[in-house]
Design a protein around this nucleic acid. Structure first.
Lengths: 212, 212, 212, 212
DNA sequence: AATGAATGAGTTTTCATTCAT
DNA sequence: TATGAATGAAAACTCATTCAT
């Protein structure tokens, strides 16, 4: 789960203040959405003052953009989980799917922030020029895996990596982002531990079967 | 695509006013999210006044709940698309997946409203007592299809209908709800027509292979 | 002197509220300048609330523009003081100068508001499309007087009405607008009654001599 | 026209910093008025920091007072332009009027600063004890000129020097201070070169005729 | 003499909601 | 049913000023 921790230390410490604001903003934007989260609450949670937020980030929109940048950067740890060349393609793919599943499961705030950003047409992501370059990496990894799988004779050819990524991401994201409506409509908590374990197998299975 | 149309007619027509408010609210909540959409704009778009909104719906939260109720009811048309007993299970399943895909594609506002509701922990859906009963229907249909498929020898047994529904919904929902972040991160528009046609095949294929 | 009086009456009276806001704003913008006058104080002085100001005028800039429009309209009473055709040109000119002098003397707030508007490059006056048409009237009157004077043989010809207007206005305006700096620099209060009477003769004399 | 130039040089130069702050403050107070000009912008324009402004001037009010002091001191150059005893009174008076006209024309910022000071009831000028002594000089000069003119038989007697000064100053000041409202109301730019040349003749003429 | 970081109080503006008619 | 006017609370943002270094 996402933790929220403040750093503390001496009186004038720009870096710490900035980090605390970012953490608080991340938490509250995720919890309440962009508009409902307010600068006062963020300042309080960050144990600082409103003007400090403006001093460090300029305005609310830029703060949200900074939160998204921060959060997108953290997500890249998924890629690190994926085994490289020496593992068979199927096993590597399984690991990638599981890592993706686990990351979403462990970071519901991340999921909610992306959902919030999309409600606002991802306008704040647009302000982050490096986002595209950073995240396209997943597609390259997937492409490599697919090619290896074809070479090993375990995957079909002609599969679009983006479609595989969509198949995986959609599932992992949705069960977190739409947890609450599903709970009410279908009376089952998608996020509860045993259910989660079963779903983890479902995506892996679905992806591997799709590729075979 | 979702249309927004006002009804017009005689000066004082309570039913029409109510419907116009609902349409306007639906549009604006979908466009801007719950908090950023405001009662004044809704009144203007509905060509009525703020007190009328309070007269008909009580308050903003209840208005949003009413919008969700309205929108959930409309979605039930998916089920009507699914062929009944006389069609082979695989073909029927394909039709169900395609109908789900098409519904999401044709109603982005619906998708956004559900996303917005989830940002607010689906608290407004909770106020709708009949939601569960109405929507569980999909699961029953899916369950029937799965059993028929097993009987026909085309599907595996032991599959949870909820998981199949999640597999389908997640994909169909995500490509619409997260369109904007994907566009920026991967530089491809998931909703563009040709791409959409390919994705439609992807879900169908993924689901059928998962079940086989 | 400018009076400040509030109207009172029944609870919901749009016209009265608007008039009170205008009066309060007029007073405070004149007293403190555009930026230093604040909406809160204006609301208090007008015995209403901030949102009412926004309801009636939109924003601070538009409120200031409305004040200027109001105040420019009132000034047109100077023209009414000027005797028409049947009075000899010199006498009529004297009356016009005196009326101008008296108007400025009696409405220091008017003077200050124009000064404030000019500090802000008269941007708020620019938003008032009818201003030019209304106020050009003075020039027409002056032009008529000048021609009559020439015909009567009491004024020189070839005089630009705008220059005469500038000669008159500058004097009448300055003694009010710059009263305080003059008091401190020259230790004489330009606005004090006896002094004022002498100055009134000075402008009349200066203008008539300039025209002769 | 008023120039704005920063001095540059070694890193720590108290005198230079002070001068730069004064120049920046002068520019911004003139441009935006007292309240709308802010310390941050002044610091930026002066290429220094806010605490430096407080170090050198104490607070915003004192800074404005310092600007006014500075600017009043510069104005005394008008007096230097006036020819002394050996020139005939009419010619000397003409020179004085022209010098006054030119000074105002060349220093619109000076004009605006005085206007701004008056909006705030010249409270900041009041903090400058030497202002009166310095500026009363003009009246002495005028008085001398008037007496010489009477002696030479070219001026009337019994004229108050202050009234002459007012007649001159008002005209020269007004065409600059109220330029923008006049432009909008009368559609003529009082400051444009040819128009300015004509007006210069107008004041000279008006003053000389008033005195004759 | 100089700076980056911090603060408290205030500013304009918005908004859900209600009153009076 | 319907409306124009009103309100209380809060929102984002600013600013003169000071602290810590």
């Amino acid at each position: 789960m996402d933790g929220f921790e403040l750093q503390s230390g001496r009186k004038h410490d720009s870096r710490r203040t900035r980090a605390n604001i970012l953490a608080a903003a991340s938490r509250l934007f995720a919890e309440k959405g962009y508009s409902a989260a307010n600068i006062s609450d963020i300042a309080d949670l960050a144990q600082t003052t409103k003007p400090m937020i403006y001093y460090h980030f300029g305005n609310k929109e830029a703060l949200f953009a900074a939160v998204l940048e921060d959060v997108y950067a953290q997500m890249r740890e998924i890629e690190r989980a994926v085994p490289m060349a020496d593992v068979p393609a199927r096993a590597a793919m399984r690991t990638l799917v599981e890592a993706t599943f686990d990351y979403h499961a462990a970071h519901p705030d991340w999921v909610r922030l992306i959902a919030v950003a999309n409600i606002h047409d991802a306008q704040h992501i647009q302000q982050l020029p490096t986002i595209a370059a950073q995240n396209a990496a997943v597609l390259a990894i997937l492409d490599g895996l697919l090619q290896r799988g074809v070479a090993e004779g375990v995957f079909r050819s002609g599969i679009d990596p983006l479609h595989v990524h969509l198949l995986i991401s959609a599932f992992c994201f949705h069960r977190v982002s739409n947890r609450h409506s599903w709970r009410l409509v279908f009376q089952r908590d998608l996020v509860e531990a045993e259910e989660a374990a079963r779903q983890r197998e479902v995506v892996v299975e679905a992806v591997l079967r799709y590729l075979s």
